[in-house]
Amino acid sequence: MNARVLPAVRRRNPLLPRNWVSEELFDFWAGQVHPLWTLRRARARLVSREAASADAVTLVLRPNRHFKGLQPGQHVNLGVEVDGRRLSRSYSPTLLDDGTLAITVKTVAGGAVSQHLSHAAQPGDVFELGAAFGEMTLSTVPAAPLVLLAAGSGITPMRALLRQLQAAGVPGRVELVYWAQTREALCFVDEFNALAARHPNLRVHLALTRDPLNPAVRVGDYDFSALGDLSAAQVMACGPAGFVESARICLQGQVAGFHAEAFSPPATNDVAAETGTVQVELRRSGRTLELPRGTALLAALEAEGLRPASGCRMGICNTCVCGKVSGVTRNILTGEHAAEPASQVRLCVNSASTDLILEL
């Protein structure tokens, strides 16, 4: 008779901290000894803070060993405690030579996180760090022309990409076009100009939309022919959704490739089909809400005083994903409807088209 082979039993190692204390308790007491000591969680300590422009500040953060790193151009979610509430926002860090992360925050009127980071955060403060996400990266340094288009906070991933190109010697032609409202709102200009002075393949172009001394130059009016032949160029654009869409339209058919990330979702164009309200049942909390159609579910839930987990707010990081039991949602980025039951929905970029049941 053949002996029955039983699966090996994994024995708990009583010496491992995770087997004799909860992660939350371990992190709390370890944090009393050193602010970055945790069992598994990635955290970062604020090292310094300095003004980047008239309305932006750069924070330098020291991550702990649990942070898995990132590629230039990617984003991370930064967890911040404001007035006793844990909030999360997405930023694009630049990895500095000493292993610290530089995150530049544009101060937004009424923005709880940006106001806190710009005015209240002090060296020594500790933040949660999410895993890196985003696909606007360079796996290899291109030899073909590369055009970087940035508006407002969209300049932060471009800074990281330029540092990557600098490390490779900027072997190919690179055109950076950077939009801001005024000259005082520009970030890193001295750094970019210094890079351009050292690398003839890099050119920096500034476009100001509210400069009293110069005509307003919005992306839709920009003369891209001044950049030279772009037929073989790859374009990477980052900024508000309207900026990205205008750039895409202007360059359609004129470039070899266009890749973009927008940090605000565009308004739905099908307003007539998305008016009125629907009933949204939150199964876990036992609540039923009347929410407007055509409004992103995350924004609609926040307007009701709820605080679902969220991060990038532009449909990339998946922090706000939750289960949808039934109903039809509409992706406000693409206009597509999704009616499959028992599926996942990203709250930040989907609105309710019919009554819904969500696992919230």
Results as ranks from 00 to 15, higher is better:
141 V>F: 09
154 G>A: 08
76 V>P: 00
321 V>E: 09
125 D>H: 02
16 L>S: 13
243 F>Q: 05
204 V>Q: 06
178 Y>F: 15
279 Q>L: 08
142 P>M: 12
64 N>S: 03
295 T>E: 12
143 A>R: 15
140 T>G: 09
26 F>W: 10
6 L>I: 09
350 N>C: 10
169 G>F: 11
349 V>K: 02
86 R>A: 06
318 N>G: 07
6 L>Y: 14
184 E>V: 11
119 H>R: 15
193 N>Q: 15
77 N>A: 04
265 P>D: 04
77 N>G: 07
256 A>K: 15
33 V>W: 14
340 E>C: 02
169 G>D: 08
214 N>G: 11
119 H>A: 11
260 A>P: 01
18 R>L: 11
315 G>L: 06
314 M>S: 15
151 A>P: 10
184 E>C: 07
142 P>T: 09
129 L>H: 02
271 V>P: 07
256 A>Y: 04
308 P>C: 13
264 S>A: 15
212 P>K: 14
338 A>N: 11
133 F>Q: 08
214 N>W: 13
264 S>K: 12
318 N>M: 14
227 L>S: 04
57 V>Q: 04
187 C>E: 12
341 P>K: 06
11 R>L: 12
360 L>R: 03
134 G>D: 03
334 T>A: 01
89 R>C: 09
263 F>E: 00
358 L>M: 06
1 M>V: 13
95 L>E: 01
104 T>K: 08
222 Y>N: 09
36 L>V: 06
40 R>K: 15
340 E>W: 00
218 R>F: 12
37 W>R: 14
353 S>A: 14
208 L>K: 01
82 V>P: 04
